[in-house]
Computed example of a mutant assay.
Amino acid sequence: MSRARRAAAGARPAAQRGGSTVSNHFGTAGSNGRFRLVALDIDDTLLGPDKQLSPRDVAAVRRCREAGIEVILATGRTRQTALPVARAIADDLPMICTTGGVTYDGAGRVLRRLPVPLAVAQFILGEMRAAGVRARVDAGDVIYYTKDPSDNAYVLPGVVDPDLADRLAAPPDQIIIWGEAECRWVIRHCSYLDGAVQLLVLPSYDDPQVIHI
């Protein structure tokens, strides 16, 4: 099943300049009437390099909501790892998690789930294991890694299972690959699966650093 994936261009460089820019863009959104909906990423957007949520940005997002502007978190995180950020802003923020894999309403109910088909996920993970390519697999609220992920700047708490390809019992919400060599392997060996799954290559196919499946 194909999944629509979207990436916010330019978010990472802005964050690397010393903090997020949410308040700069939307600090007066409530007064100009130009916005009906704001979708915000978490890492490198709401959270800067220090992984902290600034009071200024929280205030800006709350002003948007008070002005009747819908605010949605759109993130590659699972709901469980996105909740602390969401709850710091409001108790009822809708969320699009796992890079579009699962959409939740403000009460946490699943509105849509578009998982990676189980057979496809098992095949991809098996091929990656044979080639020595590492991956992160999000399955519900559990994050799995097929190898030690400690070199990943965006690592989240999870379970390391090198044989996940054999033990995965349900369709996962997404598979993430990081590192240029690993990403180029996936592009060479898995692009033909587009249609069964979609490969979101960031920042580009010419300079692949992260792939979301």
Rank of each mutant, 00 (worst) to 15 (best):
R87T: 01
R87L: 15
A88V: 00
A88P: 02
A88Q: 08
A88L: 03
A88D: 04
A88M: 02
I89M: 08
A90F: 00
D91T: 09
D91S: 13
D91G: 00
D92N: 14
D92C: 00
D92L: 07
P94I: 12
P94N: 05
P94L: 06
M95H: 08
M95W: 02
M95Y: 09
M95A: 14
M95E: 10
I96L: 14
I96Y: 00
I96H: 03
I96N: 06
I96M: 08
C97N: 06
T98E: 14
T98P: 04
T98D: 02
T98Y: 04
T99C: 09
G101P: 00
G101Q: 03
V102R: 05
V102Q: 02
V102A: 11
V102Y: 05
V102F: 09
T103K: 07
T103D: 10
T103R: 12
T103P: 02
Y104I: 02
Y104V: 04
D105H: 00
D105A: 01
D105N: 15
G106R: 07
G106F: 10
G106L: 05
G106Y: 06
A107F: 12
A107Y: 00
G108H: 05
G108T: 11
G108N: 10
G108L: 13
R109W: 04
V110M: 11
V110H: 07
V110S: 11
V110P: 00
L111E: 13
L111D: 14
L111R: 11
L111Q: 14
R112Q: 12
R112S: 01
R113C: 12
R113V: 05
R113L: 13
L114K: 12
L114N: 11
L114G: 03
L114I: 15
P115C: 13
P115G: 10
P115H: 07
P115A: 06
V116S: 12
V116C: 11
V116K: 03
V116L: 10
P117W: 06
P117S: 09
L118A: 02
L118W: 06
L118E: 12
L118S: 09
A119T: 13
A119F: 05
V120P: 01
A121R: 01
A121C: 14
A121K: 02
A121E: 03
A121G: 06
A121L: 07
Q122H: 05
Q122I: 11
F123E: 14
I124T: 13
I124C: 14
L125N: 04
L125P: 06
L125A: 02
L125F: 03
G126Q: 06
G126P: 09
G126I: 10
G126C: 03
G126F: 07
G126K: 13
G126M: 03
E127L: 08
E127H: 07
M128C: 15
M128T: 00
M128Q: 07
M128W: 03
R129F: 09
A130G: 14
A130F: 07
A131R: 15
A131L: 09
A131P: 05
G132P: 12
G132R: 03
V133F: 12
V133Q: 01
V133T: 03
V133C: 12
